[in-house]
């Protein structure tokens, strides 16, 4: 059917399909504002604008952990979580792996990366290989130290735990998505005297990591790691835009909460109307 005829048929239907939902206009505007902030921040950062990121002790300690492994003549263990590459935490973990691998290459330290997914293994190999090339130590790169273990959560944990007890790594890195295995891994690492650095956005696992690791990247810090490590204007600009948006949302939330409270206390119809309008615009009931 030709397109004009199709459009005429849709327009004349009893429930015509529409491209836009009129009630969601505020959300659309928000989308454009956020996009504009991200683009603006990136352009600003590219033009030499200084974006300051507060120091993240866990990332600063990577050199120290690799140095410890070098002095002790022991390997390092990097666990990129137990999820596949479709999980953003795994992607962030691979970014950190690049940095750890580059430092390991510079110090000529041994790094071991057991993976739960074949695709993660492939990505990790690529990242580590690139890091060794960047450090000018491509001859030291050993792909056999980055390998697949099992898709099964506890089969993997059993292997990793056994590896720690046998090889006594001097440094353990846990960056990615973790669940029940977090404490088992971190406690094993602690018991063999390793410096441990962890990063995850799984809030339920963070207390375990904080208690048993030397340094822990908490949620957002983990995602900021990429920008922190690379220092690239595009990533720094994006991070800046995210922070601005968070600040705007926080201010709006406080203002609206105050407005709702005042409306309830004073029975002000105008304020109630404003709060209801914003609630409706944001998709609330």
């Amino acid at each position: 059917m030709p397109l004009p005829s199709l459009l005429a048929q849709v327009a004349g239907a009893e429930n015509p399909a529409t491209f836009f939902t009129p009630g969601k206009g505020v959300l659309a505007a928000s989308l454009f504002v956020v996009a504009a902030l991200v683009i603006g921040s990136i352009l600003w950062a590219r033009s030499g604008g200084r974006v300051r990121i507060r120091r993240i002790a866990g990332l600063d300690a990577v050199d120290e952990a690799v140095g410890r492994a070098t002095e002790m003549g022991r390997p390092m263990l990097f666990v990129p979580g137990i999820q596949d590459m479709d999980n953003i935490q795994t992607v962030a973990g691979i970014t950190v792996l690049s940095r750890v691998a580059r430092t390991a290459a510079e110090y000529d330290a041994e790094i071991e990366v057991p993976c739960t997914r074949s695709l993660v293994m492939t990505s990790a190999r690529e990242a580590v290989h690139a890091a060794y090339l960047g450090a000018g130590r491509s001859d030291s790169y050993n792909p056999d130290r980055i390998y697949y273990v099992s898709d099964e959560q506890f089969a993997y944990v059993a292997y990793a735990g056994g590896l720690m007890v046998r090889r006594k790594p001097a440094a353990c890195f846990y960056f990615g998505c973790f669940f029940a295995e977090s404490l088992i891994l971190a406690e094993n690492g602690n018991s063999v005297g390793a410096i441990q650095i962890a990063g995850t956005a799984e809030t339920s696992q963070l207390p375990f990591f904080v208690a048993s690791c030397d340094y822990t990247l908490l949620g957002e810090e983990f995602f900021a790691a990429s920008a922190y490590l690379s220092g690239e204007p595009d990533q720094l600009g994006t991070l800046l835009a995210q922070d601005i948006v968070k600040a705007i949302v926080w201010v709006l939330a406080v203002l609206l909460a105050l407005a709702a409270t005042v409306a309830a206390l004073t029975h002000s119809e105008s304020l109630s109307g404003l709060v209801d309008a914003v609630r409706a615009a944001m998709g609330g009931g």
Partner: peptide, 13 residues
């Protein structure tokens, strides 16, 4: 430097 740290949950931040 290079020394293992001992933490508690209170050290999170």
């Amino acid at each position: 430097k290079g020394v293992q740290q001992q933490r508690t949950v209170g050290d999170a931040f």
